[in-house]
Measured scan of single mutants.
Amino acid sequence: RMRTAFTSTQLLELEREFSSNMYLSRLRRIEIATYLNLSEKQVKIWFQNRRVKHKK
């Protein structure tokens, strides 16, 4: 599987969303994925990984 290289714009938006809410509803995940031109799965995994990073 290929590793996703997020653009700086995508990362900025993902981080902004994360700062306001660490957990996404499915609807919000779809909205963000569509807006950032990513798959729902990519957004889901990014949030999972970001939560782990946040815990450390």
Rank of each mutant, 00 (worst) to 15 (best):
R51S: 13
F18M: 02
E31M: 01
V43L: 03
S39E: 12
T34N: 09
F47G: 03
S20D: 15
I45L: 14
F18C: 02
L36T: 06
W46C: 04
V52P: 05
M2H: 08
L12Q: 15
R3G: 14
M2E: 14
R50E: 13
L24A: 08
E17Q: 06
I32F: 00
E40Y: 01
H54V: 07
S8H: 10
K53M: 13
L12C: 13
N21L: 04
L27A: 08
T7M: 03
S19Q: 13
K55P: 09
Q10F: 04
A5C: 10
L14N: 02
V52K: 14
T34H: 06
L38C: 12
K41E: 15
W46E: 00
R28Q: 02
M22D: 13
W46L: 03
T4D: 13
S8N: 07
K41P: 15
N21G: 06
M22S: 13
L36D: 04
R26Y: 15
Y35M: 13
S39C: 05
S39K: 02
Q42M: 11
Y23A: 07
I32P: 06
E40H: 04
R26L: 15
S19F: 07
Q48C: 06
L12S: 14
S8M: 08
R3L: 12
N49K: 11
F18A: 03
V43Y: 01
E40G: 01
L38I: 10
E40V: 05
L14Q: 00
N49W: 11
L38G: 02
L12P: 03
V52D: 10
V52E: 13
L12V: 12
E13R: 01
T4M: 13
R29L: 08
L24Q: 00
V43T: 01
Y23E: 13
I32R: 02
F47A: 05
E17I: 04
R50Q: 10
H54F: 09
I30F: 04
T4I: 12
R28L: 03
S19K: 10
Y23R: 06
F47P: 02
Y23C: 08
R28Y: 01
N21P: 00
V43S: 01
F47W: 15
L14M: 07
T4A: 12
K53F: 09
L24M: 05
L38F: 02
L38E: 04
K41T: 14
R1A: 09
S19N: 13
H54M: 09
Q48S: 14
R51Q: 10
R29C: 08
S8W: 07
T9G: 12
E13T: 07
L38T: 10
R29G: 06
E13Y: 10
R50Y: 05
L27E: 08
N37G: 12
R50N: 06
V52Q: 13
A33V: 03
N37A: 07
I45R: 10
E31Y: 02
H54C: 09
K41N: 15
T9Y: 10
Q10G: 03
E40S: 03
V43A: 01
L36N: 07
L24C: 11
R16H: 09
T34R: 06
V43K: 00
L11S: 09
V43C: 02
R26W: 15
R1G: 10
T7N: 11
T9I: 10
L12M: 11
S8Y: 06
I30M: 07
S39H: 07
L36P: 01
R29D: 01
N21W: 02
S19A: 13
L38D: 03
N21R: 01
R51E: 12
M22P: 14
L12A: 14
S39G: 06
K53R: 11
Q48W: 10
I32L: 08
N49E: 14
E40A: 04
K41D: 14
R29N: 09
L38H: 01
L36M: 07
F18V: 02
L27V: 07
F47E: 00
L27C: 07
N37V: 04
L11C: 08
V52N: 12
M22N: 08
V43R: 02
A33E: 01
T9L: 11
F47M: 02
E15H: 01
Q10N: 00
Y35C: 08
M2G: 11
N37T: 08
A5L: 07
L24T: 05
Y35S: 11
F6C: 07
T34G: 05
E31L: 03
M2Y: 12
T9Q: 13
K55T: 10
T7S: 09
L27R: 07
N37C: 09
Y35W: 07
K41R: 12
K55R: 09
F6E: 06
L12H: 12
R29K: 05
I45W: 13
T4G: 12
E31S: 05
K55E: 13
E13F: 06
L27F: 15
F18L: 01
E13K: 02
K56M: 10
T9K: 10
N21Q: 05
K53Q: 15
S39F: 04
V52G: 14
N37W: 04
T9H: 11
N49M: 12
L24P: 08
I45Y: 10
S20T: 13
S19L: 12
E13A: 08
K41A: 15
A5Y: 10
L36W: 02
Y23F: 08
L11M: 13
Q48V: 08
N21D: 10
V52W: 09
K55H: 13
R26H: 15
E31P: 05
L24D: 07
M22W: 06
F47Q: 00
Q42K: 06
Q48L: 10
L36Q: 00
L12K: 10
K41Q: 15
F6P: 10
I30C: 09
E40L: 05
K44R: 10
L24I: 04
V43P: 00
R28D: 02
I45K: 09
L11K: 07
Q42F: 00
S8K: 10
R51T: 12
R16P: 05
N21T: 03
I32K: 04
T7G: 04
I30G: 05
L14T: 01
L14W: 00
S39I: 02
Q10P: 02
Y23N: 12
F47L: 04
R1K: 14
S19H: 08
R26I: 15
Y23D: 08
R16K: 12
M22F: 06
R3D: 15
W46M: 02
S19M: 12
R26Q: 15
E31I: 06
L11Q: 11
E17L: 04
L24K: 05
L27I: 10
R51M: 14
S25H: 05
L36F: 03
L38M: 10
F47I: 02
T9S: 13
N49Y: 07
L38R: 02
A33Q: 06
Q10L: 00
E17F: 05
R16S: 10
E17N: 01
I32M: 05
Q42A: 11
K44V: 15
R1T: 06
L14A: 00
S25F: 03
M2K: 12
H54S: 09
A33G: 04
K41C: 15
R50V: 03
S25G: 12
R16L: 06
M2N: 11
F6A: 06
F47S: 03
L36C: 09
E13V: 07
V52L: 11
L27N: 07
I32E: 04
E31Q: 05
R28C: 04
T9A: 14
E13Q: 07
T4K: 11
T4L: 09
F18H: 00
M22A: 11
K44F: 15
R1L: 12
F6I: 09
L14E: 01
N37E: 08
K44M: 15
I32A: 03
L36Y: 05
R29Q: 13
Y35H: 06
Q10M: 03
E15N: 02
I32T: 04
Y23H: 12
R51K: 12
R51W: 14
N37S: 10
R3C: 14
V43H: 00
R3S: 15
R50M: 10
K44S: 14
